Amino acid sequence: MSTDPQGFDSSAVTTWLRSVAPDAVASPLTATLITGGKSNLTYRVTDGVHDYVVRRPPLGHVLATAHDMAREHRVMSALASTAVPVPRMIALCDDPDVLGAPFYVMEHVDGTPYSRASQARSTRQRTHAGDHRTPGRHARRAARRRPPDHRAG
């Protein structure tokens, strides 16, 4: 009997991740669904030593362009060299045979996942120690940054 959350196969992801990043997995992975998302499924994954997050499209038929995991992975990877805080990308799997859809693995970063903007605003209003404008500054800085040219040649 599997204890995996719906849409996740710990054995398949463990095997795949070991094949692409052998040092990233010390023992078989276990996963829990991070609730509150609006569309893509997000899982907290651990092997007892490393903590990761896996993102994949929702279950069922979806438009590939609406839930493009490769694009999401590519954007976050590109932001890693900027002042925008993003988790470290571990690997992208574009083989739908592993989980039934493309997905990616990134490092887990402690924090609170919000499902509504009002939750973040409420937290920001209660927190006076931090500068709540910082995320907006990061977003504006990223918007001004010219994307890298990935064309061959």
Rank of each mutant, 00 (worst) to 15 (best):
Y52C: 00
A66D: 07
L63Q: 11
T82G: 11
V98Y: 09
D4P: 08
S115P: 09
A143Y: 01
Q119A: 15
M76I: 13
G130P: 04
S122R: 12
L99T: 00
D51C: 04
G111I: 02
M1I: 15
M1A: 15
R140M: 05
T30V: 10
D9K: 05
R56D: 00
L41T: 07
G48D: 07
R71T: 05
G60E: 04
R88C: 08
D47Y: 03
V84S: 08
T3R: 10
G153R: 13
A101R: 06
G36Y: 08
A64G: 13
Y114K: 06
E107D: 11
R133N: 05
S81G: 15
V53I: 12
R44D: 12
R121C: 08
L17E: 03
M89W: 04
R151H: 10
H50M: 05
G60N: 07
G100L: 09
R141T: 05
A91M: 08
A120H: 15
P148K: 06
R137F: 04
P28L: 02
P113G: 03
H50K: 05
N40F: 11
T127E: 12
L33I: 07
A83E: 14
R56L: 01
H73R: 13
L17S: 07
M89K: 06
H132T: 05
S11K: 09
G136A: 02
F8L: 04
G36P: 06
T127N: 12
L59I: 11
G136M: 02
L17Q: 04
P87A: 14
H150Q: 05
P85C: 07
A83D: 14
R74C: 06
Y43V: 06
L59K: 08
A80H: 13
H73E: 13
S118R: 15
P5K: 05
H73Y: 15
F103E: 00
Y43E: 03
R116K: 15
Y114W: 13
G37L: 02
R44N: 14
V13K: 00
Q125E: 13
D68I: 12
L41K: 09
A70V: 14
R144T: 02
T134L: 03
I90T: 06
T46K: 11
R140E: 03
L79P: 08
C93T: 06
G111L: 01
V62W: 10
T134P: 00
R141H: 05
P28Q: 02
A70C: 14
T35D: 13
L41N: 09
Y114G: 10
R144I: 02
A143Q: 02
R74S: 12
V105Y: 07
H138M: 09
G100N: 09
G136F: 01
N40S: 12
R140G: 02
H138E: 09
T3G: 12
H61V: 10
L41D: 08
R88M: 09
Q125Y: 11
G111A: 02
R145M: 03
Q125M: 11
T123L: 15
A139G: 09
V75S: 09
A21W: 06
T32W: 00
R71L: 08
A142E: 00
V13R: 00
